[in-house]
């Protein structure tokens, strides 16, 4: 797909994970700044979703199949918003831990997306 975007999403997701993990470590809940961070990562993932769909509509084929590719794109798009929502329902350090976990999961999903699209040939 768009490698720069995949790398950007993974890097920001891991940064978010580290940041919120640090907050959890310091026994702090997620603050406004964390949510701004989540918004940035989510925005990048949404751009990725659009780019992915556009590429598909141009007739490019993911290596592992369109269904799985789209499923992972959607899963990636939902991860951080879902984690953010859960952290709103848990205003303790554990809410921060949830977002940290979400960031790691998103990074893993990005690696999988890269493989599904076709690895280096993309």
């Amino acid at each position: 797909m768009l490698d720069a975007l995949t790398i950007a999403v993974s890097a920001t997701a891991l940064l978010l994970a580290a940041w919120c993990g640090f907050a959890a470590f310091r026994d702090q809940s997620t603050k406004d700044w964390h949510f701004i961070g989540m918004a940035i990562v989510s925005l990048l993932v949404l751009v990725q979703l659009v780019v992915g769909v556009v590429k598909l509509s141009r007739g490019e084929k993911p290596h592992d199949g369109t269904v799985i590719f789209v499923a992972y794109l959607l899963g990636a798009a939902c991860t951080i918003p879902a984690a953010g929502f859960m952290s709103l329902t848990e205003r303790t350090r554990w809410g921060s831990a949830i977002v940290a976990a979400g960031g790691i999961i998103l990074a893993v999903l990005e690696v999988r997306l890269y493989d599904i699209w076709g690895g280096i040939s993309a």
Partner: peptide
């Protein structure tokens, strides 16, 4: 609640 909420989130992800 608390740590349970983190577990709940992880289980939700794994369910999906």
């Amino acid at each position: 609640r608390g740590p349970g909420r983190l577990l709940l989130s992880l289980y939700g992800v794994f369910t999906v």
